[in-house]
Design a protein around this nucleic acid. Structure first.
Length: 825
RNA sequence: GCCGAGGUGGCGGAAUUGGCAGACGCGUUGGACUCAAAAUUCAAUGGAUCUUAAGGUUCGUGUGGGUUCAAGUCCCACCCUCGGCACCA
């Protein structure tokens, strides 16, 4: 009896696959393409089992699709630029590149040791010149087309990371990476005009039925479209107007004051002389407050009258103008009309400052007092002149038409989405390819001068600050336009730009004169299956969609959405928390692979539960799966010597009966189940339980049967099928047993087995009989039996008679092949 | 507050179209093997309850209603957990 030497087996097959280049994917093939993509890792250290789950899911699908005859593209690379590398470099007095490449080597080895079927010849690193050259090219394309611009603006600054962040990278007022509360600073920054694509990013979500509803909803929320009107309010005694945005033009008659954002330039323009000192004191106070708290819900409403009045353009009311802390400068016009009768915030403010409350929407549900809450629901307009009596959408449309006709307002759409701030005051990223010339101003670096190289000899001794501005050779340059001395941009690009197009580079990873070949990309994209964590629901996934749409508009690709199907896998928890180095609860795959083998790790990560759910790592659960693998090994080890030379072609299925027939039926049933579990969408946990069932069945057979009466040809046939079925999940074990059974490699090149539907339909089956819905008996019947016959047989049963005697049988429901139900009273 | 997902044995989880709830695994218990233990292997395993036993009965999928011959699955109301958004006018 031989031991299951997982290490020998796994390394043997990993080597063989590599030598035979089993997983190399030609760009063109007779076969149908399948682009299988797993979100590439940020190489911050070693992978733990939580990361590994992601890659295992992708690998199972890739291997399965390959067996189904697809030309599968299954690439891997590294999202290799980023701040952690720089921080580590500062801490360990090394270079970010060195740290990054070191980590990449570890991760690559981990992935190889796990048996991932990647086409390693397509490996990409976003930090390599040959890659970031094209990231810079992408920037130029956006710049040329007016989609990249520079402006001075309030930006989120992370004091710990010492850089600005995009809105998407601020979570609850804190830096998404390090958790430090962000502050606001004014800086000259580069932006991508993602807002110009807001409508399409929103609408095209409907074209993505293969995405989880959850992710689409999150993006919808983030884009935050609202429809309404812009209205101009004249100011009493001045030739000025305040423009506001509202989604409720039907409440225009209920405006009792106006409010400006503290940052609004209108404040200083409009404030009267007498109110100036009080107002600026208020502004100072607001500025000193925590911005996140100030702009989050339930904060106290504060403000101050600026001494000026506006005129309500629809009814001529004079209304006071306030500055209020709850009005945001970044949304709409930075000014609002306040309708305390029908808006919670305005209501709170009005209560706090004793402002009048007017009711202009009729309280439909019997409420007539607004003492404690405003009436925010839609309803019938009242006290609104000629518009009184209108309600709902009709009312809103009528009011807007009126505004447009009178020239005091117009239909308008607003989004919560802001432009993508892409400048980072860091070293380890792709330099923004722009030069500042005293004569010509902003000058983009010409395409043929790319890449703008990141200088390598860099001093990281000054803690925290980017070293780029201090490198003379980098900063000082000539203007590409006029040749005069000029200064280079010293900010680098947000690393989310690197990852917003990497799925295109995999198609032609080594091409030198362009980022990708248009024809090849159009052939391979969109990605058929994208797999990754839900934490990228907004960030990476929306940026990638945006960049794809830009490339589409510029004619570089012929598809508008990059990822046809998206699967978001759940996280692995350990000791009740997300695995993380800082919490000290990571489980490394390395030790497990050394002790139990990669196949056990793969199988457990698949068996742990539905892959989209979060799951708690459980050591004894893992051992259970490992036991299953040992159990497979023992069975094969015992029977292979006797089976090796048998020819399964001799198997005649028609002549099977009894135990053998049952076993054969089971094989077909399980084959069907596993196939459907995979096809139906990542139900790998139940697929594996099917394999367990099948193995139990085989064990039952070989133990029950006398040695002499066993059908060894059938046994061999089943054992061959079994390893084929387990191959996508435990590929090393599959290949090894396949070979030991006397077959030539590679199982990797074999087809996924079919199944015989006909044998699944048996001539006889068991039919449960229920009385008033409770199972009381079962009968075995012929497939072709008539309903009448079933009824007759049912009523003859001793057990059934017992239940229906002295009762009245109301009716008998027979659902063939399902159930019989007798209704008695 | 709004939106989304979910709630099933001691535990992880199955149940695909309304048709035998609890597949598979873990754990537990018992038998075999062994000097013994481990490993392995076979069997039992939702709760309550009746019976000497074989075998019954009854309750049971977050709670309360409803539809149906039949509900984990459909409808209504509610409770709880998780995730997202949250002064966005």
């Amino acid at each position: 009896m031989s031991e299951y030497d997982h290490e020998r087996i796994e390394i043997k097959w990993q080597r063989k696959w590599e030598e035979a280049r089993c997983f190399r994917t030609p760009n063109h093939s007779e076969k149908k393409k399948f682009y299988n993509l797993v979100m590439f890792p940020y190489p911050s250290g070693t992978l733990h089992v939580g990361h590994v789950k992601n890659y295992v899911l992708g690998d199972v699908l890739a291997r399965y699709k390959r067996m189904r005859g697809y030309n599968v593209l299954n690439p891997m690379g590294y999202d290799a630029f980023g701040l952690p590398a720089e921080n580590a470099a500062i801490e360990n007095k090394t270079h970010p590149a060195k740290w990054t490449y070191h980590n990449v080597d570890i991760i690559r080895n981990q992935l190889k040791r796990l048996g991932m079927s990647y086409d390693w010849e397509r490996e990409i690193y976003t930090c390599k010149e040959e890659y970031y050259k094209w990231t810079q090219w992408l920037f130029l394309k956006l710049y040329e087309n007016g989609l990249a611009y520079k402006k001075k603006a309030a930006a989120n600054w992370c004091p710990h990371c010492k850089t600005v962040l995009a809105n998407e990278q601020v979570v609850n007022g804190k830096c998404e990476r390090c958790g430090t509360p962000v502050t606001i600073i004014q800086l000259d920054q580069w932006f991508f005009k993602i807002t110009e694509y807001a409508e399409r990013l929103l609408n095209d979500l409907d074209k993505l039925p293969g995405w989880p509803e959850r992710v689409r909803t999150m993006q919808k929320n983030w884009i935050g479209r609202s429809v309404g009107a812009e209205v101009d309010f004249p100011i009493k005694g001045l030739e000025k107007k305040i423009r506001i945005f509202t989604t409720r033009p039907d409440t225009l008659w209920g405006v009792t004051f106006m409010a400006l954002a503290p940052e609004s330039p209108l404040v200083s323009e409009l404030v009267t002389e007498e109110r100036k000192s009080e107002v600026s004191a208020f502004l100072e106070k607001v500025q000193s407050e925590d911005r996140f708290k100030r702009t989050s819900a339930n904060g106290p409403k504060e403000g101050i009258f600026i001494g000026r009045y506006a005129i309500n353009p629809v009814n001529g009311d004079e209304i006071p103008i306030y500055v209020a802390n709850y009005v945001l400068m970044e949304y709409g016009t930075g000014a609002i009309m306040a309708v305390p009768g029908h808006d919670q915030r305005d209501f709170d403010f009005a209560k706090a400052y004793d402002l009048p409350i007017k009711i202009v929407i009729s309280p439909s549900n019997g409420r007539d007092s607004l003492d404690d809450a405003p009436l925010t629901a839609y309803g019938t307009m009242i006290n609104s002149g000629e518009f009184s009596g209108l309600s709902g959408k009709e009312a809103i449309d009528a009011v807007i038409d009126h505004l447009e006709k009178k020239g005091i307002g117009k239909r308008s759409v607003n989004y919560k989405l802001r432009d993508w701030l892409i400048s980072r005051q860091r070293y380890w990223g792709a330099p923004i390819p722009v030069v500042y010339c005293p004569k010509c101003g902003i000058v983009p670096v010409p395409e043929n001068e790319l890449p703008v190289r990141l200088p390598e000899n860099v001093d990281f001794s000054e803690k925290g600050a980017s070293p780029l501005p201090k490198i003379k050779e980098f900063v000082e340059t000539q203007c590409p336009r006029c040749g005069e001395t000029a200064i280079r941009e010293v900010d680098t690009m947000d690393t989310f730009i690197d990852s917003s197009w990497y799925y295109l580079r995999y198609i032609n990873p080594h091409i030198e004169d362009k980022p990708f070949d248009i024809n090849d990309v159009n052939e391979w994209l969109p990605v058929d299956q994208y797999i990754g964590g839900v934490e990228h629901a907004i960030l990476h996934l929306m940026y990638s969609r945006f960049i794809t749409k830009v490339l589409y508009d510029l004619g570089y690709v012929n598809f508008e959405e990059p990822f046809e199907n998206l699967f978001t896998q759940g996280m692995i928890y350990y000791k009740g928390a997300k695995m993380s180095k800082s919490k000290g609860n990571v489980i490394s795959p390395d030790d497990l692979i050394a002790r139990y083998g990669a196949d056990s790790v793969r199988m457990y990560l698949l068996f742990i539960g539905p892959p989209e759910n979060d799951a708690e790592w459980n050591d004894s659960g893992f051992e259970g799966v490992h036991r299953f693998i040992l159990r497979i090994w023992r069975l094969y080890d015992e029977y292979i010597p006797g089976l090796k030379n048998l020819n399964t072609k001799c198997l005649s299925v028609e002549n099977l009966s009894g135990d053998e027939k049952n076993l054969y039926v089971k094989l077909n049933r399980i084959t069907k189940k596993i196939t459907e579990d995979i096809e139906r969408g990542f139900h790998f946990n139940t697929a594996i339980s099917g394999l367990m069932e099948l193995l139990n069945e085989v064990y039952g057979y070989v133990q029950r049967k006398e040695e002499a009466s066993k059908d060894f040809v059938l046994l061999k046939f089943i054992l061959e099928r079994f390893v084929t079925l387990i191959y996508p999940f435990a590929p090393h074990l599959g290949e090894e047993l396949w070979e030991l059974l006397g077959n030539d490699p590679f199982l990797a090149d074999k087809s996924w087995p079919g199944y015989d539907e006909n044998v699944l339909i048996s001539e006889r089956y068991t039919l449960p009989i229920t009385i008033n819905g409770k199972v009381r008996d079962k009968i075995e019947v012929d497939r072709n039996i008539s309903e009448e016959e079933i009824k007759r047989l049912t009523l003859e049963r001793k057990r059934i008679k017992k239940w229906i005697e002295r009762k009245r049988v109301e009716k008998i429901i027979v659902v063939k092949e399902k159930i019989v139900n007798i209704v008695v009273k």
